[in-house]
Design a protein around this nucleic acid. Sequence first.
DNA 1: AAGACGAAAGTGGTTGA
DNA 2: TCAACAACTTTCGTCTT
Length: 307
Amino acid sequence: MRRTTISECPDCGSKDLRKDREKGEVICKECGLVVEEKMVDFSQEWRDFSDDGGESKRRTGAPSTYTQFDQGLGTEVGTTSDFYKLGSEGAKDKFFRLRKWQYRISTAIERNLKVALAELKRVSSFLKLPKSVEEESARIYTMAVQKGLVRGRSMESVVAGALYAACRRHEVPRTLDEMGEASGIEKKEIGRTYRFVTRELGINILPSNPADYIPRFASALNLSAETQSRSVEILEQARDIELTSGRGPTGIAAAALYVSSLIHGEKRTQREVADVAGVTEVTIRNRYKELIKKLKLTKEVEKNKKK
DNA sequence: AAGACGAAAGTGGTTGA
DNA sequence: TCAACAACTTTCGTCTT
């Protein structure tokens, strides 16, 4: 895969950049700007779900692209020019039957996919998601359609659910709020379809890591790179003493960022942090209290308060 | 006046009988 | 299927800067 390399930050010109290979992000250490969000595609095809309904969707060969409505493969059984190559009458009958049958089952799905993938691309570009996530979500959506999971649900909500799932798998999580804003679907609904689709398709998603949210939140708050990396340290320590399990990852990320901003004398209000993280001040306060207590950070915060 | 703090009641999802 | 439960939110009053 070809990757372009950027050697200096377009915002402040600093050459001190930090690369996060896993997330395909490049972050400027000076200003914390997320310079590049290019995803390395390490996705695999996990399409051999166990037998269901008898029809096998397996195939071999080069991977096709899923962001084209027909997956980049022609779906015509044959063209009329092929017709004249056929010999017997039986073969000709079969030719027509096959083509008619093929046409019927494919048009419904194709029509759906065509519209859905356009919507998917729209939302994806709105959220500035990497290409590989877009591909993955298209793949998820395609499978959902083939299994008839869209029935009884709005197409848009399934699209949003597929995108959300793909983001999680690629460790570039967006919050349900952001997804809701981009797609115009209520976040409750997205969460519901997301859970439904992933369960039905047997996709397992690891619980998202709070640290994955840090670069974006910090960038939105104009926090320095030191503050940012400090908050990641805090998160690691918090995880080691089981402060993170069971809690909402965004809340923890937000609290770590808040503490870190206090320590580095770039104070942000709880309100500001809460807004970009999509949680309430109360949640930040609760996490914040736990953090400074369990990690004996009180002294550090006090020390920098006077500045 | 704005921000931080905390109590109390409500919401939606998970879990276990 | 239902009730208990944990996490989070909303709302509101009080304290601090």
